[in-house]
Design a protein around this nucleic acid. Structure first.
Length: 464
RNA sequence: GGCCCCGUCGUCUAGUGGCCUAGGACGCAGCCCUCUCAAGGCUGAGAUCGCGGGUUCGAAUCCCGCCGGGGCUACCA
């Protein structure tokens, strides 16, 4: 396998907030490609932003990825032949690489302050010319300063590479200014750490979001300067946009947070399916894909070039499809965490009427919370109260099963001369306190008979 | 500002010169089923293919320009 020069891919999420939808999407495509090639999927944690890093964010990434079943072979928690996999634990490596570049005259110390840099930038903007670092610290380094960052001396020229979704890419590196590779706090920038690790970890294919397309020439120049081998190809996946076409933001777009899907009861396999179709299509009418089917069908040449908007409606539909396909045992098991108040047997009995009524598991709570929450008895008009009484009579001795309850009720309805609607509505109200519920016979059946009859009885005593 | 990517129904998309009076899916509307809500079945509305020029007998598909959106241009990743 990978030991003999096989495919190696990675994701490199940054633990600076909750786990992102984009991370899941990128991980999916990486894993798909790895599986297709019997390659190795690596997880590397990009924790070089000391300001924003939190260990709990890192835990969130593991959690979400595990939930989705997107498992890695090498990572900080698993180790591997290229450990460590946490960039904060690799700073010596980056420092060494940076020192080598300085020694070879391919990088230099920059003592400029943020203010000075800002002034340079503003000046450039004022003169309406593209900004590039002036190289003042290369040409004429100050002697009285000690705090420095390391800048890469960009060689310029044309940088070309293969993008598996877009084909051959070409960038003019003469337009790129010298950029910082080691910050003054000693940590590497993303632009530096990422290519160094990719090279050292023998990553063969870099599959990541489109926001990194323009970063690629920066990183390629570094790889070349360091004398490392370049990845054989890149793939830049279309961005997932918010529904309004804007970039997703933490504030305005809860759908960015991976944790909410689990909390709401979206199935991991539905998420993966939806994510796969957001930015890729098989060229056929098929929309429902198991993971294995995706492995068989996915290819980068059918990946979309434009960003795709996230659509709750379609996700909901797809999740519903997956829920409806689940067997009773499986659905029961998945529902349990959402219904801690109910025993397994009750959940199981609720499943037949429940299955087609949910597009996400958390909705089961709305349908079933009457089982553990006593509703306020409704105020009934005399006619309705009579019907409830008739129902009580009909239900008193009937076997407590959905079918027999339904039959008894229908008989009572016929006798009453009223329609089912008029007859069942007060029952539903007395039983659940709601306008919407599971079919009335199931609503009754799921409740113990004595509790059900008690709620009905009580309702006959309350008058408008 | 510079560089790069992108632009087909509201949304995700099929489409690589004639098979397109532009297909599918979600959503939407109507009907059927029906105790409510779903699911399911049937039917339907919805895109002058961003705009303007070319090339061609013929363009959503090729070329040019423009406009619009996004990304990068940070001691964020």
């Amino acid at each position: 396998m990978s030991k003999h020069g096989g495919v190696r891919v990675r994701i490199a999420p940054s633990p600076t907030g909750f786990a992102h939808l984009g991370t899941a999407s990128t991980a999916l495509y990486n894993l798909l490609f790895a599986r297709q090639n019997e390659g190795t999927f690596v997880l590397r944690v990009d924790d070089t932003d000391v300001e924003r890093y939190r260990p709990e964010y890192e835990a969130l990434i593991y959690e979400s990825l595990h939930w989705l079943g997107l498992d890695w072979a090498e990572g900080p928690d698993k180790g591997g032949p290229f450990a460590p996999y946490r960039q904060s634990e690799r700073v010596d490596i980056y420092k060494g690489e940076a020192a080598r570049l300085i020694q070879e005259g391919k990088a230099y110390r920059c003592y400029c302050t943020p203010e000075e840099l800002e002034a340079e930038r503003r000046q450039a903007q004022l003169e309406k010319r593209p900004y590039r670092y002036s190289r003042r610290c290369l040409i004429n380094p100050p002697l009285d300063r000690t705090v420095f960052a390391v800048r890469f001396k960009v060689p310029g020229g044309e940088i070309a590479f293969i993008d598996m979704v877009r084909g051959g890419m070409k960038f003019d590196a003469d337009l790129i200014g010298d950029f910082i590779i080691v910050k003054s706090d000693g940590y590497p920038t993303y632009q530096f750490a990422s290519p160094v690790d990719d090279a050292l970890m023998k990553i063969t294919h870099v599959i990541r979001g489109e926001e990194h397309l323009s970063n690629t020439p920066y990183q390629l120049m570094l790889v070349d300067a360091l004398g490392h081998e370049r990845a054989v190809a890149y793939a830049h996946m279309p961005l997932i946009l918010a529904h309004d076409g804007a970039k997703m933001s933490k504030r305005k777009h809860p759908e960015l947070n991976l944790a909410i899907y689990r909390e709401q009861g979206y199935l991991p396999e539905a998420m993966l399916n939806y994510l796969a179709l957001l930015g890729w299509n098989p060229g056929t009418a098929q929309e429902i894909f198991s993971f294995d089917e995706l492995v068989r069908t996915f290819s980068f040449d059918r990946v979309q070039h434009a960003g795709a908007r996230f659509d709750w409606e379609k996700l909901n539909w797809m999740n519903g499809e997956y829920i409806r396909k689940l067997g009773d045992d499986e659905l029961t098991a998945r529902l349990r965490p959402f219904l801690p108040q109910l025993d397994e047997e009750t959940i199981r009995r609720a499943i037949p009427p429940l299955r087609t009524r949910m597009y996400k598991l958390a909705q089961a709570v709305d349908y079933l919370d009457y089982l553990w929450t006593d509703p306020a008895p409704p105020a009934l008009d005399p006619e309705a109260a009579e019907r409830v009484k008739a129902a009580i009579n009909a239900l008193k001795d009937v076997p407590w099963e959905p079918e027999s309850i339904e039959a008894a009720l229908e008989e009572a309805v016929a006798r009453s001369g009223a329609g089912k609607g008029k007859f069942y509505t007060p029952l539903r109200d007395a039983l659940t306190g709601k306008k919407v519920s599971l079919p009335i016979h199931y609503t009754l059946h799921l409740l113990p008979r004595d509790v059900a009859l008690q709620r009905l009885q009580r309702a006959t005593n309350v008058r408008v």
